[in-house]
Computed example of a mutant assay.
Amino acid sequence: MAPTSSRTRLFVIEQDTLQRQQLVHYLVGQGFDAQGAPSPLHASALQSDLCPDVVILGRTTPEMNGIDACKRMREQHKHLPFIRISDSSDELERILSLEMGADDCLSHPFSPRELVARVRAVLRRMAQAVHAATTVEAGAIRMGEQQFQPEARGLQSARGFRALNPVEFALLDALVHSASTPLSRPQLMDAMRRCPGAITPRAVDAAIMRLRKLVEPNPNVPRYIQTVRGQGYVFVPHDSKTPAVLHF
């Protein structure tokens, strides 16, 4: 495989020293600027001069499982894309990784060539989203102090641009396009049909909770993404006079 044309910065978090070194060596050989650390607790480089473009999150310390590491990554670095490498081939593990904020997920054993392909795919999505965010204003949907930009596939606010992952985008786009009309869980599952991972009512509910954390001033009292008892969820536009819907 030919090296990348630019020095994209990657940061590898992997507890196993040999595997971390081998992976960093391979990525450098592919033209990336790659460095590593044994755990998220040692990843101070995320805030240093490295400023990685993508983080590869592998096996972490016994004190922090992979799902918790995904959650910590997304909470501390809201706009930084990362790919989880799970130690388990279990489907639920991959789904939870994506639900906790991972932009993509692989499981052991994996091909380094496939990892590079997925890194490039994440970078393409991010580049397209950032470009669209700086050029597309028409069609933006206001949600309080931020805007949902469908063509950019993300949220724009005074703090910057936040690209949505495929599941988040599919759900929010479906809700926005049916503003003020409740959508059932099966309808939302249908909107997610092209997203990675198993599509279940539980996955819908988990993704809705994530979206509320992103768009709601108070996720515990949703203003824009509301629950309709016995039906599903509804998007209430920013300037809508529709009264709040009772939650359950």
Rank of each mutant, 00 (worst) to 15 (best):
I208A: 01
V167G: 15
E145V: 04
R20L: 05
C195K: 05
P222K: 15
A102N: 11
M73D: 09
A158H: 13
M143Q: 11
R210D: 01
Q149Y: 15
V167R: 15
P166V: 00
S88H: 05
A132S: 10
Q47M: 12
R94T: 12
Q147H: 05
S107N: 06
V24E: 11
A170K: 00
L46Q: 05
M209K: 15
F11G: 11
A206F: 12
Q21C: 07
E151K: 14
N218D: 07
Q226G: 10
H77C: 00
A69E: 08
E91S: 01
G232Q: 11
R153N: 01
A174F: 02
A129C: 06
P237K: 03
Y26H: 12
P237A: 05
M1L: 03
H25M: 11
H25E: 15
R9E: 14
A170G: 00
Q19G: 02
T4N: 04
L214G: 11
M126Y: 06
E63H: 10
V122I: 06
R84D: 07
L214E: 09
R193H: 09
H77M: 00
V167H: 15
Q35K: 08
A37C: 06
H25G: 07
P38T: 06
L172D: 02
A140Q: 02
Y224D: 07
D68F: 12
R120P: 12
A163N: 02
L96G: 07
P237D: 05
A140M: 04
D49F: 13
A132W: 02
R20N: 08
V221M: 06
L27P: 03
R153E: 00
T8Q: 10
L106C: 03
P201I: 05
Y233F: 13
T134W: 11
R125H: 06
Q156C: 09
D68T: 09
C105A: 06
H131R: 03
I56Q: 14
T200W: 02
R59G: 09
G36D: 06
F11T: 14
K78Q: 14
L171Y: 04
H247A: 08
A198S: 13
G160M: 03
